[in-house]
Amino acid sequence: MLNSYLPAIVFLLLGGVVGTAFALMNGIFGPKTNRRSASKTSPYECGLPSDVQQGFRFGISFYMIAMLFILFDIEVIFLYPIAVKLKEFGAFALVETSIFVALLFVGFGYVWRRGALSWR
């Protein structure tokens, strides 16, 4: 079973080799002097003194998008098996799919009306 996936495994390994090579190349070819100062190692800032912090807060909109993504990605995942066998199942699958999508779109309309899709 697994041996028919050999090319995929080889690709994964090659990707790992290239990634490691890029990660290590500055250590090998780059200058070896290690003069570090506070301003050199601080994260990028433009003009102001660098505000170093680890815990960032960010907008609630990102959470909303993530939740909606889960909902609609599950819709897509459910549609794939139906899509493969649609020709065999015929009208039955078509009606079922339409009802499923219609129900989901009631929710989509609600979310839209409540303004979750408008970026703030």
Binding site: G19, G30, Y44
Partner: peptide, 29 residues
């Protein structure tokens, strides 16, 4: 390739190094 190996002092070392490799591995796969 001939740049100095550098990371900011606020970075989380291992993840900072591994993240570009994740991008490459998935693209190649």
């Amino acid at each position: 390739a001939t740049k100095e190996s550098f990371r900011p002092r606020t970075s989380v070392g291992f993840i900072f190094m591994a993240a570009p490799a994740i991008s490459i591995i998935t693209a190649v796969a």
